[in-house]
Design a protein around this nucleic acid. Structure first.
Length: 296
DNA sequence: GTGCAATGCCTGCTTCTATC
DNA sequence: GATAGAAGCAGGCATTGCAC
């Protein structure tokens, strides 16, 4: 069995059409037909059901295709691993991150010691992040989400407290603590959708409190602007507030319910990770560990 | 009639083996 | 170790057979 046969089989399986697959592979159709026949002969079973002019992957073909894809992927990863060893200075790390101002600081610190590393930073949805972790399109994800997938490893980086934020001079600005259900129709400015909005809605449900959502905004900068303009109050994570360092925004801790989220690092343990991606992974864990201890 | 998969035969390349 | 011939194999062209 040869690698070429496997590439050819994969292409035919994708198209379920020998002529189109041959065109794709830039070889003659009879040649491809024979290659598939030889492969089937070697395996001792047909990989396709032939019906007239049509060929369709059968149960053996589907099982074999799955194994072939795994084998070809492993070889690709092997090539990538060797390439990484040769061209360390051109290594890319692809990162999915939540919207938080701490990420630029994290990347800046890492690049002080590793200036040759290039980053691709994405902000995909929860669903897309899982998809791309599975496919290996992203190396790591830093987010408040966890993924229900046995191949995805997750490490908690920190517990990020969520606080209420009011503008300076607000009637609540002098309160060290508040209870959510004691807010008395304060207008809220919230994200229109997404993970953080879902989190806020969960807090409201826990407090059995129906909020007056005056503004739903996509952009966090706009939320900040609206709060500063005195148009409402909002939730911020303490992590975000620490990096914002904005004296016109007053954080108030929420006494009830307990409002926080777990920020974690996720990666696909079944996929190949370049040495520099593994170095970065450990750097992120250490960075957040230091951040947590400095906060205490 | 047309389109498509399969077959037969040929060519060229690679690998193996024997010989020097 | 180098070289020449044999064998095996992949792929191309021409063609066939079959389904639509």
């Amino acid at each position: 069995m040869e690698l070429l046969q496997l590439y050819y089989f994969k292409t035919v399986a994708q198209y379920e059409h020998i002529t189109k697959a041959a065109k794709e592979l830039s070889i003659a159709q009879p040649s491809l037909s024979q290659t598939i026949s030889r492969l089937e002969k070697e395996l001792g079973v047909p990989l396709f059901d032939r019906s007239g002019r049509k060929i369709k992957l059968n149960q053996y073909g589907r099982i074999f295709l799955h194994k072939v894809e795994q084998a070809l992927l492993t070889l690709e990863e092997g090539k990538r691993e060797i390439n990484d060893m040769i061209h360390l200075e051109h290594t890319y790390i692809t990162l999915a991150v939540m919207q938080t101002p701490i990420i630029p600081d994290l990347l800046r610190e890492f690049r002080l010691d590793h200036p040759y590393v290039r980053f691709r930073v994405k902000q995909p949805s929860h669903h897309k992040t899982l998809e791309q972790l599975e496919s290996g399109d992203i190396d790591l994800s830093i987010s408040a989400s966890t993924f229900k997938n046995p191949n995805i490893d997750w490490v908690k980086l920190l517990e990020d407290e969520i606080v209420l934020v009011v503008p300076i001079g607000h009637r609540l600005a002098n309160h060290p603590y508040v209870k959510l259900n004691e807010l008395n129709n304060e207008p809220f400015i919230l994200r229109s959708h997404g993970v953080f909005r879902n989190l806020c809605d969960r807090f409201f449900r826990q407090a059995n409190y129906l909020p007056d959502v005056a503004f739903e905004v996509d952009d966090p900068l706009s939320i900040r602007g609206l709060v500063k303009a005195g148009l409402g109050i909002t939730f911020f994570s303490t992590l975000t507030l620490r990096t914002l360092k904005d004296p016109t925004l007053v954080p108030i801790r929420i006494d009830e319910p307990k409002c926080s989220r777990s920020i974690g690092l996720s990666w696909n343990k079944e996929r190949y990770h370049s040495p520099i991606a593994i170095t970065f992974r450990q750097f992120v864990i250490d960075y957040f560990s230091k951040l947590t201890s400095s906060k205490d």
